[in-house]
Amino acid sequence: MMYGIVRTYSPYLRALQRSWEPINATGSLQIQQVRWRKRRTDPKAKSKIGRVREPTPFDPWERDFLVEKMPHYRSTMNAVRHLFNEELERKKDETAEGLSSVEQEREEEEEFRQLLKWNEQENAKINARRKEKLAAKAKEIEEENLQRLLRKEEQEAEEIERMRQLVLQEQEASKTFITMETMEAAINEALDNPKNYDFLIKKSGEPILPEDTAWESFKERTMKAKDEEFVADGGDENQVKSAEN
């Protein structure tokens, strides 16, 4: 057991042995301090048994103050460091190029004036283009409005003409209207000339209209369709006329 302890701490013992030798070969005094380190398996010191560490007290106002001010402090310090780095780099460039700070500032100012003048010229060009574009757009809008007004006037004129034609048609149709004066004559004519509204339809779909049918327009369309079908089949117009007669 004792051998194990000596073997474990042999490096420390050799260090202590060297520190016990006060004088070296040159005759000067040597003192070497060796710090004793505690192992993980060693028990707790007697002076710390039952000791409970109290948390470090802090001021709430100081904590809030630091939380609020530290970001500003860090940003300010970063800006200062950045400025110092730029100044250092500028001095290095001046040393490399052989220009003084005054000459470099003068060149930078002249370059800034040229850039400002070029910027004003570009702004003037862009302003002129913008004015031309706005003028063209305004002219286009004015032409569109004029065309819209013309189309509206044409539509109104067409609507007026259509209404006039309707009025004329109604006036022409009103001549055949039955009035109180012509009612008796119309009744007598209807009794003398009866009209039949009935008609037959074949299985093929062809209608059969009576002679006294009231569907005169339908009868005309039917006869015209028959004539066209007969001509398309190779019939002669004379045969059509004879068939009609």
Rank of each mutant, 00 (worst) to 15 (best):
E108M: 04
E108K: 05
E108F: 02
E109M: 03
E110Y: 05
E111W: 06
R113N: 00
Q114R: 10
L116S: 15
K117F: 04
W118S: 11
W118C: 07
N119R: 10
E120N: 11
Q121C: 01
Q121G: 01
N123H: 14
N123Q: 15
A124I: 05
A124T: 04
K125M: 14
I126E: 14
N127I: 13
A128Y: 10
A128L: 14
R130D: 02
R130P: 00
K131S: 10
E132S: 05
K133L: 09
L134K: 11
L134V: 06
K137L: 10
E140Y: 13
I141M: 11
E143A: 03
L146M: 11
R148G: 03
R148H: 09
R148Q: 10
R148P: 01
R148N: 10
R151V: 07
K152V: 08
E153M: 10
Q155D: 14
A157N: 07
A157D: 05
E158Y: 09
E158M: 08
E159Q: 14
M163S: 07
M163C: 06
R164F: 11
L166F: 09
Q171Y: 08
E172Q: 07
E172N: 06
E172Y: 06
S174K: 11
K175I: 04
K175S: 02
T176I: 03
T176Y: 09
F177T: 07
I178E: 01
T179K: 01
T179N: 00
E181N: 06
E181P: 01
